[in-house]
Design a protein around this nucleic acid. Structure first.
Lengths: 232, 232
DNA sequence: TGTACATCAGTGAACGCGCGTTCACTGATGTAC
DNA sequence: TGTACATCAGTGAACGCGCGTTCACTGATGTAC
């Protein structure tokens, strides 16, 4: 499984890749709901039934695209984070923000597949989860690092977290070890804020209003950094 | 046009409404991309060609659904806002947040149509804009009211807005008269944060992590209120 | 109020197209002796 | 190294279904005199 040995296995890996690549390209024209095995087969120049040698059904192809997509975001986020000094927590946060936005702008339909409306009739299997949290893991590490370094100083005490928030906070804390419920809440605000912005921008909610989104985005993510307690 | 006079006009208005209602219901099973005139006609018990007496094409039906959807959100937001004392700016903000979230939970597929992935091949005509900003207008009034009442006191000076942010800020200011560029940025953060949260919750990003989203949501929106400068 | 005509709603057949999936099959590649 | 057999990739036809849109048409409703 790890590295293909026989010629057959090599060809198979190549064709599998070619199929997902073509399918990815088709997302742009027809969207996830309209992803069609026959169309992919046509572009590959093979019989539509041949695709079934590689993916047992349309939904499995979709799952592969979703996993690839999450991994692609995870990778750019990991790289953006790693390119910054470990102690530059604010810089790492901003780098992650821009990595997500840049990737989304470069792959709008894949972003829509991952973070937009669910595909009707499709239910993502459990294997997508590991890939889906790669970016979140990086984010959690940044916040956690900042906390451990004593670099988190929120502008003022936040509203008191309701006691019933504790259980959810505990689950989120697995990604951001050590921090208080208050920081968990702030971290949720920033993370949802990042994707909320990108979705608004990509899905047209800013049309005719925000014409220089790159500038506004960077500025707003700096606000998020401060709310979170990261130094300016 | 205003109120139907002849029997024919009354029946036409009724059937038009019935068509959109059925189409709305079909969103739930097939999503926007799969919205089918034939399916709607079938459920109405009429020939598929008859639908064309009411909507010249599938896209026009979709447009009607989108406009209705934005108006529905706009209405619940307006009502939630109006139910609070005018000076209770924080309460009005939270009421708006909950109105948006409650509506989204009650109408997930319509929410996805409005704020989720764009429908492939569909381009929203200009008539949707007026309806689309109804909720934003309410939001802008709350922030503007708070500003005029001297009730906006952010926890600390924000990061300095870059000069190039000015033009976009000016456009946003048409909805939030009187406020500084700094407040505009904070307002954008809160607004995108609200929809970012709701999208995450609705589109499954919180699955197995946030199990009591109502509590976490309320708490996080209070954080947004403070970042915006609204009193706790 | 009654009639002649114009407008409109709805029908059903048709065009031309697409889809996912199955199945019996051919021919090539890999494996065990 | 050579042969016999098993595995796999890919074909092409078929099943049964769905779609948006057009068109000539019937019959009912509305309007002008």
């Amino acid at each position: 499984m790890s590295s293909p040995r026989t010629a057959r296995e090599r060809v198979r890996a190549e064709l599998t890749r070619e199929i997902t690549d073509l399918a990815r390209a088709r997302l742009a024209t027809d969207g996830a709901a309209g992803l069609s095995l026959r169309a992919v087969a046509r572009e590959m120049g093979m019989a539509s039934s041949a695709i079934y040698r590689y993916f047992p059904s349309r939904d499995d192809l979709l799952t592969a695209l979703i996993i690839d997509g999450y991994n692609a975001v995870g990778e750019v986020v990991e790289k953006a984070d790693a390119a910054r000094p470990r102690e530059d927590h604010t810089g790492r946060w901003l780098a992650v923000c821009h990595a997500v936005r840049d990737w989304a702008l470069a792959h709008p339909h894949e972003y829509a597949l991952l973070y937009g409306s669910p595909v009707p009739g499709y239910r993502a299997p459990a294997d997508t989860v590991a890939a889906a949290v790669r970016d979140t893991v990086v984010y959690g590490r940044i916040v956690s690092d900042a906390h451990r370094a004593g670099a988190l100083s929120p502008p003022e005490p936040g509203p008191p977290p309701p006691p019933s928030f504790g259980e959810d906070a505990a689950r989120v804390r697995e990604l951001i070890p050590g921090v208080s419920d208050d920081v968990i809440a702030r971290a949720l605000v920033a993370w949802t804020g990042l994707f909320g912005w990108v979705s608004f921008e990509l899905f047209g909610q800013f049309d005719n209003v925000i014409l220089d989104p790159a500038t506004a985005f960077d500025h707003c993510m700096r606000h998020h950094a401060r709310l979170l307690g990261l130094p300016a």
